[in-house]
């Protein structure tokens, strides 16, 4: 992780040095490296900036809002052309966003929202968690094609917004299909170990797994743990029990390639791409983007070249 941050800052510095005055300079304040997905988002943001010839000033806030506010103030002082920020918390941004607005620097929020007035930022790019769950649910409806199906659900951390929204979305997705029924639903805390433990209990409780037709996990890590539990119970994951989950981390592509998982919904780490596009349009002719740009929640199945996707994803820092 340290190595990556170091590389990132060296990269940012060298880009800085190479920057001509005509080039666009964008400051990016990242939360920190809290998860593999976050690391991948940083990597992809740098790649997107590079392909567009944008100079990216990167600042790692190490999970602290005061670091982010300091970074934003320093971006404003440097007079960057735009600011990207993944806010660590939702509150307390009003004054620094006002400073940016006074300096006429557009701010784009990535992945997370703030509770300030929408006038204070240009737009927000993010995924719709409910939509992700709905895509997973709709896939299952299509996959079982009217056959009766008893589903077990591995929830994320109880009370967290991904857990609540991905559960609600999935239920929306299967709402029309009376043949599909969620029979057991428990939290697996978004971890592999708990995913495996809870799946073992589900398998025991459902006649050794014979009564389970599909597993829906709120993230891929829990699905990877559950796949091991299914295998150890003497069943074939992906055939005896369908597996659908959300996030699209590299390890689930391996499981897809091996036929052990059936589908995953991508939470794309490419939040910066749409942000840069919106900024380019804004700079070109003042086009105001929508206040919320929803990223695509793409569905990957075994038919979507999982091995190739694994190779493309594995070096992003997940």
């Amino acid at each position: 992780m340290m190595k990556r941050t170091l590389m990132a800052s060296v990269g940012a510095l060298s880009l800085c040095a190479a920057a001509a005055s005509a080039q666009t300079t964008v400051g990016f304040s990242q939360i920190g490296s809290e998860s593999g997905w976050r690391a991948a988002e940083t990597t992809v943001t740098m790649q997107e900036a590079e392909t567009r010839g944008i100079t990216l000033q990167f600042s790692d806030a190490q999970q602290r809002q005061e670091n982010q506010i300091a970074a934003l103030r320093s971006f404003i002082a440097q007079g960057v052309d735009a600011i990207l920020v993944s806010p660590v918390v939702a509150t307390g941004w009003d004054s620094v966003l006002e400073e940016a607005a006074e300096a006429e620097i557009p701010v784009v929020l990535l992945d997370r929202m703030v509770d300030s007035s929408p006038d204070l930022y240009l737009t927000a790019v993010g995924s719709d968690l409910v939509h992700e769950g709905r895509v997973a649910g709709e896939w299952l409806v299509e996959a079982v094609a009217g056959e009766p199906c008893r589903v077990v659900e591995l929830q994320g951390t109880t009370g967290s917004s991904p857990a609540i929204d991905r559960k609600a979305g999935f239920e929306e997705g299967i709402a029309g299909a009376d043949n599909i029924e969620i029979v057991r639903s428990q939290t697996g805390d978004f971890t592999r170990a708990q995913g495996k433990t809870v799946m073992e209990a589900f398998l025991q409780a459902e006649n050794g797994g014979a009564d389970i037709c599909a597993l829906y996990a709120h993230n891929d890590d829990m699905a990877v743990g559950a796949i091991q539990a299914i295998k150890e119970a003497g069943l074939v994951p992906g055939e005896d029990i369908l597996v659908v989950s959300i996030d699209a981390v590299p390890d689930i592509f391996q499981a897809l390639a091996a036929g052990e998982a059936n589908a995953t919904v991508e939470l794309t780490p490419n939040m910066a791409g749409p942000a840069f596009d919106a900024l380019a349009a804004y700079f070109a002719d003042g086009t105001m983007p929508e206040k919320f740009i929803q990223t695509e929640s793409r569905l990957f199945t075994q038919a979507d070249d999982p091995q190739g996707e694994y190779d493309r994803h594995k070096d992003l820092g997940y």
Binding site: Q155, R184, S185, Q186, T187, T197, A201, F202, A205
Partner: peptide, 14 residues
Amino acid sequence: NTGILLAGFPSEFN
């Protein structure tokens, strides 16, 4: 712990 998982209560009660 195992009993809670088997009993089928909503996870908020765990």
